[in-house]
């Protein structure tokens, strides 16, 4: 259950619309299902009343939408940001991807968002409605007569279980209380993989990545992926969409996608959230983050505006690629 309510958010948005601070609101809109929340633009209190939602399925990070929507807005655009979203917001500002003057950011507290696939694993398919009730979600389905009650904490998204910060690093106005940067266990799974043999790791990734259907949703949702010309849209790149000839050929896509955001990825977790195949893409991103922290010192993308990303920086004392792992006597 979220601490802040839909009514409070609508009241805030309506107030800012009516006093002229903003001309439009970027918020979560009703989708086809209760869990299918869709980023939506609202221009009036009436539209908000009819279509705005706020529940445990509002995972969408709006930062990336600012790139296209803020430029088009007549006045300022109101955007609601959860703590993790504010890191992406700063990172996009660092990269000059939207005009700060065109945006009015309202930070909102977050209690963690639910992962619908985890809900479905318990309730089964055919979900007719989901409503929050205290610390639980009450789910009705087409196939079960009685509503199913699920503890929200049991179906939290992976990124929320390992939330790195409840602190907002950017906002014009904050609703609720400010949180703190958390000591999360988000690198544990990466470390577990690192401890495996190369063969085991290969098998792990072959199993995960062979499910990829190359829908490109992970790229499309990623706030760090805002290139106007993307390498994956180039039909001559060798990594454009094409039918695979064996089960593991999308690995190149995955290495490149993760590499392109290395040092800039804030670990917001949108890629894993949107993947229809539940591929743990965040592990690739976190591997880069963990490596960068270990090789070049702790760095959190988006923590500050205008910080220099580690892969566009250097010192003369950096370690050699061969020293990254034990290469025996190969590296003189």
């Amino acid at each position: 259950m979220q601490k802040i309510t839909r009514e409070q958010l609508i009241a805030k948005a309506s107030e800012l619309l009516s006093n002229g601070t903003v001309s439009q609101v970027l918020g979560w809109g009703k989708g086809e299902f209760d869990y299918d929340v869709t980023p939506t633009l609202f221009s009036s209190a009436e539209e908000l009343e009819n279509g705005f939602v706020f529940n445990d399925f509002c995972g969408a990070n709006f930062s990336k939408y600012l790139v296209s929507k803020a430029a088009k807005a007549d006045g300022k655009l109101l955007v609601f940001l959860k703590p993790c979203d504010t890191y992406s917001f700063n990172q996009l500002l660092t990269e000059h991807r939207f005009d700060r003057e065109k945006v009015y950011a309202v930070g909102i507290p977050c209690e963690g968002m639910a992962d619908i696939s985890k809900v479905k694993a318990i309730s089964g398919d055919g979900i007719a409605s989901i409503n929050a009730d205290g610390d639980n979600l009450v789910v009705t389905t087409l196939y079960e007569d009685a509503p199913i009650t699920i503890a929200t904490k049991d179906v939290l998204a992976e990124r929320c279980i390992n939330c790195k910060s409840k602190k907002h690093v950017a906002y014009d106005e904050l609703m609720g209380e400010e949180g703190e940067v958390l000591a999360s266990n988000r690198f544990d799974e990466v470390a577990r993989l690192e401890a495996m043999t190369a063969d085991e790791r290969f098998a792990f990734w072959q199993n995960e990545l062979s499910r990829c259907i190359r829908c490109n949703a992970c790229r499309d949702a990623c706030p760090a992926c805002t290139c106007e010309k993307c390498v994956f849209d180039n039909p001559n790149s060798g990594v454009e969409n094409k039918s695979p000839a064996n089960e593991f050929e999308e690995k190149l896509f995955h290495i490149i996608r993760a590499y392109h955001v290395a040092g800039r990825c804030t670990d917001c977790g949108e890629c894993s959230r949107v993947c229809p195949q539940n591929i743990p893409l965040h592990l690739l991103n976190r591997k880069f983050i963990k490596d960068i922290n270990e090789f070049y010192g702790e760095y959190q993308a988006g923590e500050e505006v205008d910080s220099r990303a580690p892969l566009v920086n250097y010192t003369t004392e950096d370690l050699e690629p061969g020293e990254v792992f034990d290469r025996g006597d190969n590296n003189a």
Partner: peptide, 17 residues
């Protein structure tokens, strides 16, 4: 720059087995 880029890339390739 090459040194940093390749350290990150080679380590990632190793991570994928």
């Amino acid at each position: 720059y090459t040194r940093r880029r390749m350290a990150a890339l080679f380590s990632m390739l190793d991570f994928l087995g």
